[in-house]
Design a protein around this nucleic acid. Sequence first.
DNA 1: TCGTAAGCGAGACGGTACGTCGAGTCTTGCT
DNA 2: AGCAAGACTCGACGTACCGTCTCGCTTACGA
Lengths: 206, 206, 206, 206
Amino acid sequence: MRTNHELQASDSPNGSATSAGRPRSDEAHKAILDATLALLADVGFSALKVEGVASRAGVGKATIYRRWRSKLPLVVEAFSLLPALEEVDTGDLVTDLKKMLRNYFELFNSTPLGTVLPSLAGERRHNQALSKLLDPVLRERRRPLVRVLERAVERGELPRDLDIDLAADLIVGPIAVRLFFGGGKLGPRLIDSIVDLALSGLRGRS
Amino acid sequence: MRTNHELQASDSPNGSATSAGRPRSDEAHKAILDATLALLADVGFSALKVEGVASRAGVGKATIYRRWRSKLPLVVEAFSLLPALEEVDTGDLVTDLKKMLRNYFELFNSTPLGTVLPSLAGERRHNQALSKLLDPVLRERRRPLVRVLERAVERGELPRDLDIDLAADLIVGPIAVRLFFGGGKLGPRLIDSIVDLALSGLRGRS
Amino acid sequence: MRTNHELQASDSPNGSATSAGRPRSDEAHKAILDATLALLADVGFSALKVEGVASRAGVGKATIYRRWRSKLPLVVEAFSLLPALEEVDTGDLVTDLKKMLRNYFELFNSTPLGTVLPSLAGERRHNQALSKLLDPVLRERRRPLVRVLERAVERGELPRDLDIDLAADLIVGPIAVRLFFGGGKLGPRLIDSIVDLALSGLRGRS
Amino acid sequence: MRTNHELQASDSPNGSATSAGRPRSDEAHKAILDATLALLADVGFSALKVEGVASRAGVGKATIYRRWRSKLPLVVEAFSLLPALEEVDTGDLVTDLKKMLRNYFELFNSTPLGTVLPSLAGERRHNQALSKLLDPVLRERRRPLVRVLERAVERGELPRDLDIDLAADLIVGPIAVRLFFGGGKLGPRLIDSIVDLALSGLRGRS
DNA sequence: TCGTAAGCGAGACGGTACGTCGAGTCTTGCT
DNA sequence: AGCAAGACTCGACGTACCGTCTCGCTTACGA
């Protein structure tokens, strides 16, 4: 289900008329996105060549540029197809967070997510256009985490005056740091520690 | 004081002899690094052109390539010259952290740090060579934070069994997240909140 | 009519199929050759820059290198388009030769021939590849002169045992010498003298 | 014996004062010229690199540029050191010419002459500076041939009204043609034919 | 059932930057 | 001062992609 219409640079016949001529091939569309993800994972954003995508997808370059104005929105759309945090609601904050983050962690191993995300994020600052496309996608992907925290506030598990965005950052922060800067390896056990530490604070709890 | 010898791609005769021939110009060296930082700040990593650096530094391209094998190690060395966390030691953890992070935050506004760091970090995954050059630099830049935390453990302000690396990630995490993903803006007040939240945890303290 | 297929470095699909993709532009092809000739005349072979040809032809460098492996075959092909000796057949050897050479002499003034020819010839010795391309072209350009001499032999105007190649060299020699080494200027009157002298010999005739 | 002062770009103290400082090394001078000739023979004029000359001569580049303003006068001077036509005077024109040209022909096999001469000649047209340096050298090298012809005129072997320059061109022409354009190989026998043909004319004599 | 309009793979197009190389100049420390 | 060495600026080299533009097809629709 594609909803992100800004991603398409296309002058596609989204009006009423069903348009004349040969319709665009969904097959090609999918092949392009798959190739993009595969190459992003292999070589990263800046070494990704549109010609490489085309040849890997068995597609002409024009077929790519007909759908995406440049390699940027193409990459963003490919990225947006990667799975995001999946909401978990057991009624217990600690359980929810640990389950969600463990699931998410699995995605880093099973999808190009771990390599694509830093590539795009690193480019965001220098590329207003990318930022405009990417930011809503990123915001959306965080939503499940924000909702879990909001529910915890409602249940009284967390203080009413908590800055939810900041709270989310605190939880996600250590993962991001290790993703971007290397440092110690991630793992299910570490993820539990992160959640515990974020909830109780460095000073530890009574 | 440059210590990071791996950054130089040069085959320079760093043995004992002063080497024959005209020595490399320190002036040019500095001009190149300055130009690199200036351009990084202006246009970012991927839009940085070596030719741009050369012309801005008033230097021939060969002079750049004689010292750095490509734009990557050049940028890494330029980056490593940017100021890092500056250690503060007042005897009180909260004060130390807040001062350090506030100082650090200033650097994001007064240097290209905020733009260079994500660029490099985003590339790290796809570029083993970059990773090799960059990782020690990154590790070194974290060191002041680690030391502050270690002192706090010794003073008893933090639990003895604390995972210091993880603790550092928790503190730095929210800053990294906003740096890479956008989200809410940073500011001195927010930095205080980060420190308080990290120390006491999301649940708040007694 | 281009027949000299070796001149094209291209891997063009000259088989049977019309080949896929956009066909190469004849317009660009011509513009490149024209620019090459113009620049050869202006600045000569060794000062001719491929970038200069490209910009003068309003063409990207790649478009040149797609067709010719280097500036050398480019220049050879451009050269091969210049007019050559034009055969004249009046039935009288002296008349034929004088007309042909006078016509040829005009070409030195009206085309880049006089500058291009020495440039290429001077390079021939050091450049096997050039030699391979150039020699057949040069041979072909001499042919009209050889044929005129052959006809004269058949008519009995010249001895049957004459070494035709050497005879051609004798006639063309003085022109070449002045072309390459400077010396006295050429002119229609001088050309007549050359023909007379070559036919009758230095000792003069009875 | 160097006499060609224009060839030296040097500001050498050719006045009265014996100049202060270390005198220029004649050894280096000779090594440079030798290296130049060797490289000219190997790779030709346009592929000759000053750095190549320097390293082959075991000399710094500055030592070359201190003596010759650029690679051009260097090459010209090296060329001017090559042996030229050597005058022969037996009292018989045919004998003189055949001996001289046969000697000269030997030089093509035993020196870089055959490769250097076309290179320089081919450049002459596009390089006024080269032309200025080279032309007197070329003129001088022809002198023996001119003198032989003049003597033959005086002896009555050749007509009084003969255009001596043109006569020289006629004799030298076929050699030049084969040197520059390839064609049939040269050899002692062919040289005799050239002389005979030039003296008696293509039509043959009574 | 057929024309027509758009999509298709392929690849050439004008550009721009790459990383290399050589020209001719300059700067070391040594002779 | 000259010397060997080698770094300096400059500018062209030949390559690789960018995003656009034809080619000669193929494919669906609507007349």
